[in-house]
């Protein structure tokens, strides 16, 4: 991930946007699988979360963020007795996907806001650089 070039403000905002997009993707996957059932605890869907890690550039003092890995987090799938379900195991239990929908929606809103902030930063930086290039004209 580390490049030999010094980091620019565009990389700071751009990589932060990519990281937020990964987070948005995991949220989308979590929400899409909410309410899903499985026949065993291992097969049941578990909430996915990205792990953010700061990437610091010594040369410029800038810091951006990368997704280090995506982990499964949150509670274990809920066991529910439902013998009529075709997915039920031999004891008549099914396992509900472990997704907290409220938390996912809050996460989605925060992700969208952070993404927008980074877009704003990039636009402002671009405008100021363009203005600087026009200096003296």
């Amino acid at each position: 991930m580390a490049s030999s070039q010094p980091m620019t403000i565009f990389q700071v905002a751009g990589r932060a946007m990519s990281a937020q997009l990964v987070r948005m993707n995991t949220t989308a996957s979590n929400l899409a699988n909410a309410g899903g059932v499985a026949g065993s605890e291992a097969a049941a869907y578990k909430t996915m979360k990205p792990v953010f890690r700061t990437s610091f550039d010594q040369a410029t003092g800038l810091a951006t963020v990368d997704v280090e890995k995506v982990v499964t987090a949150g509670e274990a799938p809920t066991k529910r007795y439902d013998p009529n379900n075709p997915m039920a195991d031999k004891d008549g239990n099914v396992f509900d996907a472990a997704v907290d929908e409220t938390r996912e929606l809050v996460d989605m809103m925060e992700t969208a806001r952070t993404y927008q902030n980074n877009v704003e930063v990039m636009q402002t930086a671009k405008q100021l650089i363009v203005d600087t290039l026009k200096m003296g004209r």
Binding site: I9, V12, A16, F52, T60, N117, V121
Partner: peptide, 20 residues
């Protein structure tokens, strides 16, 4: 001003990084 812009951009980029 230019360097401070980079510093503040780094803060905003890391708004949701634990421990930053």
């Amino acid at each position: 001003r230019s360097q401070r812009m980079g510093l503040l951009a780094s803060n905003i980029a890391n708004a949701s990084t634990p421990g930053f």
